[in-house]
Design a protein around this nucleic acid. Sequence first.
DNA 1: TGACCCAAACTGTAGTACAGTTCAACTGTA
DNA 2: TACAGTTGAACTGTACTACAGTTTGGGTCA
Lengths: 217, 217
Amino acid sequence: MSALDGLEVRRTTTAQQLADGLSERIMAGAFGPGDRLRESAIAAELGVARNTIREAVRILELTGLVRYEVNRGAVVIAPTPEKIEALYTARERLETAAVLRTPRPEQLEAITRAFDEITEAAAEGDTARIVDRDLAFHQAIVALLDSTRLDEFFAAMTKELRFYLMVLSKSETPEEVVAQHRVILDAIRLGDHDRAVAEIRAHIDVSVEQLEQLLRR
Amino acid sequence: MSALDGLEVRRTTTAQQLADGLSERIMAGAFGPGDRLRESAIAAELGVARNTIREAVRILELTGLVRYEVNRGAVVIAPTPEKIEALYTARERLETAAVLRTPRPEQLEAITRAFDEITEAAAEGDTARIVDRDLAFHQAIVALLDSTRLDEFFAAMTKELRFYLMVLSKSETPEEVVAQHRVILDAIRLGDHDRAVAEIRAHIDVSVEQLEQLLRR
DNA sequence: TGACCCAAACTGTAGTACAGTTCAACTGTA
DNA sequence: TACAGTTGAACTGTACTACAGTTTGGGTCA
């Protein structure tokens, strides 16, 4: 570790900051799914030029939270059964592949820690934190694959998923969440690959089913 | 199938067309790795406004061929040992997970077809087409996962990889390429998952090694 | 040789303008 | 009343201009 570790010049652009800010707002629900991001309005409100907003939104597009439609501009993504299914299918493939590998100690520790945090959050009834740690748990599982590219890909999907969970205001009972993750963790700990795969599949099936039910209303 | 299937109005913007065009040019080697895309020069040459070019380049960024550096603008990505390794690691994880699944007939057919095309191209000594069909072969393997999201992710990586292969002007003997893919195809056909996994690992190890050797010069 | 400085080139951002598109409200008609 | 047609406001896509701040590739000077 260098003495200068962590020291870094502030190196960012207005557009990047705007993108980050907008991303936060969208995640927080300031814009609902399907909403258009009107450039002039945002530009005026934030006191920046419209082209800067356009750039910010293009950067936002990288995260997958908005997509561009010709002559309609940026539109916040909206969950559909197909999209949710596609998202969870990809998750299932990655996570089941991941648990076939034998965890290194620090990897197992990371997963265990995430589980403990889910348990804590559940005890406190902090639903936002439950979701957060839930996703961290699965990210830690994917990390078993030892692939930065797949980690990044999964993180991007997580961002999308978190947004869907937010707008659908999905809420299982905390006990269920803890129980479902405990069986996965146990299977991983025991090195029982088949069972881990089965539990992940079950967990994901349940989630998809619940989300689609929410969506149908 | 609707009677209107496939009918679609041409709906694209100048920026999108520019992004497509630039992408092609980069893939064709008009810009080398590490090159900067100078906005004013491109804008002047193509007779469009600079902000339109900026937008086009932001769109390009989505494909991963360029990345933005503050105050330096868009820079064409350059291969490094780390990046190549990360790319191939992700490929290895996906492809080995894929061959654990039992192919449906049409999937097996797609893989076989890609292999036949590699063989054809090899016979004709058409190296560009060998690379193209090689990548198609692997895309067909990933398709075994039945996940559109992962297909898209892999396609994006393929684009990046194709560029690296191009700039490194990698060239194995066509016979080697055919031989390596034949053993993979055979293992898949026989339903021998372990052997398919092993062959894919071997294939990828060889590729990484060759590329890094090229890179060291 | 190396530190320093400078000007050219370029990016990031602002601001204005306008043609073309979308969309919702309004109008007229059967 | 239902529907086709029209209109206008709002908004996007694109162009153009401008300028401050940053990078960069020389020079200059010690």
